Structure formats: structure tokens, C-alpha cells
Amino acid sequence: MRADARRNRDRIVEVARDLIRAKGYDAVSMDEVARTAGIGAGTLYRHFPTKDALHDAVIEAWADKVNEAVDQAMELDVPARDRLLQWLKDYTAMLTTHQGAAARITASLGVAGSPYEAKCQTYLQANQRVIDALGGQLRPDVQAMQMCRLVGGVAAVADNSELPPEAVSAMLEVLTDGFLAPKAA
């Protein structure tokens, strides 16, 4: 990619990220992104043919953050419950960083060809890493997809409500206890 094209792409992503954080995904139009970025609509659509493709680029950096969060939570020198709870809190925080993302990503889990397929795979793999790291301390029937959907549901509620952080944390504690094997709780 030429340097000027790369600058345009980076500027578009930066502007879109700021607009989505401020207004939410549904309230931001492609025309508004182009106008705010100071580029023409043609330039925008050359880089991102759809709004979903643009949103996917906005949240692309999540993969690195997800993997770092898993590593940090699993390396904590605390009981399994606390490591798991820390991961679920971090996961929820990442899903709610961009308003509306939690519901869209969670609804896209298992949907082949979804614009969020790569992000869904990142979260599935992250949850599988948590399951593998905690081994026999989790219920044997816990699956990565279940974790994604349940935590995604809590994140979507948190993202679309006025719940205080302690209410969200309490829901995540219930999930944590539900994932743990009875002997590890």
C-alpha cells in the first residue's frame, strides 16, 4: 500500500473509532466518517466497501489485547476463581469498549462469513486457552463457545443499560461460579 493510501486508511479508522465510541455504531454513517476524515466517499469505500468492514478494522487491535489479557489473568498468583473472574471482567471490558460491539460480536459467534468472524475466532481461542489453563478446576462440560455467549450476553446488557459496574461484576461472579467445578468453587 502506498504511503498516502496507508495514511488515509489509518485516518479513516481513527475517525471511525472516535465516532463509534462517542455515538455508537448504529448512529455513525459512512458519509459522516468520510466527511470527518476529510476524504471523499470513493476513498472511504475503496478501503472499506461496507460499514461492517470498517467496524472490523476499528476493532482489529482487539486480538492483541485479548491475548495479552488472557496471559495476564492466567499468570496471576491467585486461586483459579480469581484468575477466571479477572479474565471475564477483562473480556467484558473489551467487548464494551465500542458501543454496540458486544451484541454484534456475540450474535456473530458461529456464523460463517460474518464480518466479525475473525474477532469471534479470537475470543473462542482465548476462552479455550483459559479452559486449558484452568484444566480440571472448571466443570468438564464448559466449552469456549458457551463462555463467549454467556459473557457476551452480560457485556451486551452492560453496554445497553445504565447498570453500575458493581452490578455487572456481580453477574460475572455468578458466571465464574457456574463455570467452576464444584470442588474448585
Rank of each mutant, 00 (worst) to 15 (best):
H98M: 09
L138P: 02
R139D: 07
G136Q: 13
A107N: 15
H98P: 03
V130W: 00
P115H: 13
E117Q: 15
L95S: 06
R129H: 06
R83Y: 05
A102C: 08
T106M: 11
C120E: 08
R129L: 05
L109I: 14
W87E: 03
A107V: 05
M94N: 04
A133I: 02
L134E: 05
L85M: 04
T97L: 08
T92V: 10
I105C: 06
I131C: 01
I105R: 05
Q86L: 09
D132G: 04
L95P: 04
Q125F: 07
A103E: 14
G113T: 08
D132Q: 08
I105M: 11
V130S: 02
Y116M: 12
N127C: 03
Q99P: 07
A101P: 03
K119H: 15
G110K: 08
T96M: 11
S114G: 00
D90N: 08
P140F: 09
S114E: 02
L134G: 05
T106V: 10
Q125W: 02
G135M: 12
G100V: 12
T97P: 01
N127L: 01
S108K: 05
D90L: 05
L88V: 00
A107F: 13
A93T: 14
Q125M: 07
Q128H: 01
K89T: 12
L134S: 09
Y116D: 10
Y116F: 15
K89Q: 11
C120N: 10
S108F: 12
Q125D: 15
G100W: 08
R83V: 07
Q125H: 06
A107T: 13
A101K: 04
S108V: 04
T97I: 00
D141I: 07
Q125A: 12
M94L: 14
A126N: 05
T92G: 06
Y116T: 02
T106H: 08
Q121W: 15
E117V: 10
G113K: 01
D141A: 15
V111F: 06
T122C: 13
A126R: 10
V130K: 01
T106I: 09
D132I: 11
W87A: 03
T122I: 13
T96R: 10
K119M: 14
L109N: 13
V130A: 00
Q99A: 11
I105P: 04
L138Q: 04
P140R: 09
D141E: 15
E117R: 10
L109Q: 14
H98A: 07
P140L: 04
L88Y: 03
P140W: 02
L124T: 03
L138E: 04
A101H: 07
Q125V: 12
Q128V: 00
V130P: 00
P115A: 11
V130D: 01
D132N: 12
I131P: 01
A103M: 09
L134V: 12
S108Y: 12
A103Y: 12
L134I: 11
L88I: 00
D141V: 07
L88A: 06
A112M: 11
Q137K: 11
T122M: 08
L109M: 15
L95W: 03
W87T: 00
L88W: 00
P140C: 01
I131K: 02
A102Q: 07
W87C: 02
A107H: 14
L124P: 03
L138W: 01
L84S: 05
V111W: 03
A118H: 13
R104G: 05
T122Q: 15
L85V: 01
V130C: 01
A112G: 09
A112K: 14
Q99G: 05
G100S: 12
T92P: 03
T97M: 07
R139C: 07
